[in-house]
């Protein structure tokens, strides 16, 4: 079942066309990834789907309904949740408060339940519950960002470059957690990454984004083997 369908999406920054008529889809239960180098348009795509940026052309469908004009609040309520580029935690709130903000639209009871799951996945968040989010390490902040997104009880969890600026060991941990999220919670994941290797390893399908256009698509296994991808993104 198709959860998210993006059709001929175009997004501009003034006269700069960052995303040029791309189309892709994410099905229920999948982990799909968009890979590409810096400036390819990955974050722009994510922000537009999440409702942070206005689009200039094309359509977005959610569960068959036309979600093009929905604002961020509506999208979150429908279950489209983004953990943004750069983590974007609330620095002057505690870890606990950050998480609770993720559950802004849910009752305290529900939030406490979700919180337990989040704590299970990310024990460090429970350990550092009272600490100010701005003082956490990069990896901890990333976990917080993902945990916070999970508190919104997403149907589609979107992750923008979760590996950015993190040590390889931490990156490994984060990616295995992403897998667990799909396995244990059944959450669909849309992942955007510069680290192509890790992204392709955990995902089912992938699209390659190059200067705003999708140039390649297929199963992640295929793309891992493709010579093009290997040369351009896997450093071989």
């Amino acid at each position: 079942m198709t959860l998210l369908k993006v059709e001929n999406l175009s997004v501009n920054y003034g006269s700069i066309r960052a995303v040029r008529e791309i189309s892709f889809e994410v099905n229920q239960g999948e982990i799909v990834t968009l890979i590409g180098s810096n400036g390819a348009g990955k974050t722009t795509t994510m922000n537009t789907i999440a409702g942070l940026k206005e689009l200039n052309g094309g359509k977005i469908f959610w569960n068959g309904a036309d979600a093009t004009a929905w604002n961020a609040k509506r999208k979150v309520k429908e279950g489209i949740v983004l953990s943004p580029e750069g983590r974007q935690v609330f620095p002057d709130f505690s870890v606990y408060d950050n998480l609770m903000l993720g559950g802004y639209h849910f009752s305290n009871e529900e939030n406490q339940k979700t919180l337990r799951t989040v704590h299970e996945l990310f024990p460090v968040l429970e350990k550092r519950e009272k600490q100010m989010a701005g003082t956490l390490s990069g990896g901890e902040q990333q976990m917080l960002a993902v945990g916070r997104a999970l508190m919104s009880q997403p149907k589609l969890l979107m992750l923008d470059e979760p590996s950015m600026g993190l040590a390889p060991l931490i990156v490994k941990e984060i990616f295995s957690l992403i897998r667990r999220i799909r396995e244990e919670m059944g959450t669909t994941v849309l992942l955007v990454e510069q680290n192509a290797r890790m992204a392709l390893k955990i995902s089912d399908r992938a699209y390659v984004l190059q200067t705003g256009k999708i140039t390649l698509e297929g199963s992640s296994k295929e793309l891992l083997q493709s010579e093009e991808v290997q040369k351009a993104y896997l450093g071989m």
Partner: peptide
């Protein structure tokens, strides 16, 4: 603290 992040919380 962060208007965009707040938007993402709905």
């Amino acid at each position: 603290q962060n208007a965009d992040a707040a938007k993402l919380m709905g």
